[in-house]
Simulated assay, not measured.
Amino acid sequence: MRWRFRQISDLAVSWAGHHVLPAALIAFTAIWTAVGLIFSFPRQWFLLTNMVGTLITFFILLLVQHSQNRDMKALHTKLDELIRSSEAGNHWIAAEKKDVGAIEDMRQQHQDQISQNRA
């Protein structure tokens, strides 16, 4: 099931991010508005359209967030492996999981080491 969701999510995110989509949506909106004005769509039709548009926007937001979270986890895993295989200190592994104070302390130590090496 997760594999299928990932496939659908990747397809939807790539489709939603396509460069033609904004122009197609603007054209669709203009045509829809013109047809609505010609046939005098009732006010409820516009409210329904607003609701559907909001739901679609929310759905796309969730898909993009899911995709970004997966990409960030993969990126952190790759960085951790690079740190593990290099001469860097292993205390940097999984730094994103530490609290803000610990990360700031690590960053300050790193800046102090850089300034000592320059002097």
Rank of each mutant, 00 (worst) to 15 (best):
T49L: 07
M51N: 02
M51K: 04
M51F: 05
M51C: 04
M51G: 02
M51D: 06
M51A: 11
G53L: 00
G53F: 02
G53T: 00
T54R: 00
T54P: 01
T54N: 02
L55G: 01
L55F: 02
I56R: 00
I56M: 06
F58A: 15
F58S: 08
F59L: 13
F59K: 04
I60S: 00
I60Q: 00
I60Y: 01
L62G: 06
L62K: 07
L62C: 11
L62D: 05
L63V: 05
V64H: 03
V64S: 03
Q65F: 10
Q65N: 12
Q65L: 12
Q65W: 04
H66K: 11
H66D: 12
H66I: 01
S67P: 00
Q68C: 07
N69L: 11
N69Y: 13
N69F: 07
R70C: 06
R70P: 01
R70N: 12
D71C: 09
D71H: 04
M72N: 10
M72F: 08
M72K: 09
M72T: 12
K73T: 13
K73Y: 09
L75I: 06
L75H: 05
L75R: 08
H76V: 01
H76D: 02
T77K: 14
T77N: 12
K78P: 01
L79R: 07
D80K: 05
D80A: 08
D80Y: 01
L82V: 05
L82P: 01
I83V: 13
R84E: 14
R84T: 04
R84P: 00
E87L: 14
A88Q: 11
A88I: 14
A88F: 15
G89I: 13
G89H: 10
G89E: 15
N90C: 09
N90M: 09
H91Q: 15
H91F: 14
W92E: 04
W92S: 05
W92N: 12
I93E: 07
I93F: 07
A95I: 15
A95Q: 07
A95V: 13
E96H: 08
E96M: 06
E96L: 03
E96N: 07
K97G: 08
K97F: 03
D99M: 02
D99Q: 08
D99G: 05
G101I: 00
G101F: 04
I103H: 01
I103K: 06
I103M: 05
E104H: 10
E104W: 05
D105T: 10
D105C: 09
M106N: 04
M106I: 04
M106T: 08
R107L: 12
R107Y: 08
Q109R: 14
Q109M: 07
Q109P: 03
Q109T: 10
Q109C: 08
D112Q: 14
Q113I: 10
Q113T: 11
Q113H: 12
I114T: 08
I114C: 03
I114L: 14
Q116I: 13
Q116E: 15
Q116G: 03
N117F: 15
